[in-house]
Design a protein around this nucleic acid. Structure first.
Lengths: 221, 221
DNA sequence: ATAAATTTTTAGACAAGTCTAAAAATAATA
DNA sequence: TATTATTTTTAGACTTGTCTAAAAATTTAT
């Protein structure tokens, strides 16, 4: 069994490994968890003894198979709870993270299995991130940034890159939500801003926004 | 804000105060929390400084108004989560406690308010215990032990006294659940066992069982 | 390739919460 | 009311997870 703190370290390493393949540095973990490098070293030694990470002094850490499974399970719980909060309790995008950070540590296999069933076995959380299955595997969906589409192309909004509270609130305000079809009406050359249609509305968004929105290819009409 | 441990102490004192009115003893708290008297003394001093309990050396403790509010709120969360687990996730009586012990410590006012609404503002948990409202007040329902009813009297099953896992599983097996109407068909003098009807079934139960089941007066037909 | 900058680790300290063992206070009993 | 017995508190120690400051290793740059 793992403590709350151990689970948070495993989760951080898990997320960092998805970005950079290869070992994860002490400093990177420290920054992600808003703690000090010395604390990371201490914890990493403990995790190494528990055989959830591989660790060589000064060489960074890697999750073992066991470690990856534990971490993916925490992520699974986090994202399932986010779905619950949004779909059943009317939370909005930007409100779920803080609460899910707590709920992800509740220990009960039955709880999470039943929650999964209750929610209809969702595959993605409200931010569009995939929910690992019971074995920790992710279903990969081909996705592109909205900014890479050309004029008259369209796709379904499936997630965000920057999931900061400000950005999510901005999207809420503009009516940009998951599952909506977005079509590029026009691209301005001088600042790369876009005219798009979403639902029955038309609006103009900056390139910065378009570079933070993930789109899945739109099949069928 | 209170730590998990502080919340557990406050909850224990809250439950103990409902039984014995007057101060709660150090040993009673230690027994309830399966810890040592010396640990209780330490914690009680801290709670006293935080002004949630009144404490005089060797004289036991009492919750302050603030302490009672905090404790009742933890109990409220515990019982709302129990309702959720039973009604939405198909847990049975005896499985909910352990998980609710964890969920009761999640901190989010919005979460618990929305959960309350989602569940339809329940007034009692699956064991028949009342759920404190937002201000920590309990709705008191007149209740009697099944063993105190006379022949041909009837009432609605609203709770248990002994909520041990074994007892709850026994009730499940016999089909005795909350909200069911129970009528006393006969009482045996020599061992005080009862013949009862519940739903459309008839069964015989010992006095020990009847002394652990709470009944509310049955109004209407 | 050697010096400087950065990263990582070690060493020692601290707070929270717990424990054991012994001392102090209270309660029970003869 | 003395004298046990019980309860409660104190004192000191331990664990987990964290921190600061300094030392060691690694990387970067000259």
């Amino acid at each position: 069994m793992f403590t709350l703190s151990e689970e948070n370290y495993l989760k951080a390493i898990y997320h960092l490994e998805l970005g950079n393949d290869g070992g994860v540095s002490t400093n990177a973990i420290a920054e992600k968890l808003a703690t000090k490098a010395s604390s990371v070293t201490d914890m990493v030694k403990k995790l190494s003894e528990k055989e959830v990470v591989l660790y060589k002094k000064y060489k960074g850490v890697t999750l073992t198979i066991l470690g990856k499974t534990v971490a993916a399970n925490v992520v699974r719980k986090h994202r399932l709870w986010e779905v619950f909060l949004v779909e059943k309790l009317n939370f909005s995008w930007h409100e779920v993270h803080e609460v899910a950070e707590q709920l992800e540590h509740i220990k009960s296999a039955k709880l999470i299995n039943q929650l999964d069933r209750f929610l209809g076995f969702p595959t993605h959380d409200p931010h569009g991130d995939p929910i690992p299955d019971k074995d920790g595997n992710l279903k990969i969906v081909e996705k592109s940034l909205l900014s890479t589409l050309s004029k008259n192309e369209s796709g379904i909004c499936i997630g965000v890159d920057d999931s900061s509270s400000e950005f999510l609130q901005f999207l809420d305000k503009k009516g940009i939500t998951l599952g909506k079809k977005i079509t590029i009406l026009d691209k301005e050359d001088f600042d790369d801003s876009l005219s798009i249609s979403i639902g029955d509305k038309k609006l103009s968004i900056s390139n910065k926004i378009a570079s933070n929105l993930y789109i899945r290819a739109h099949t069928g009409q």
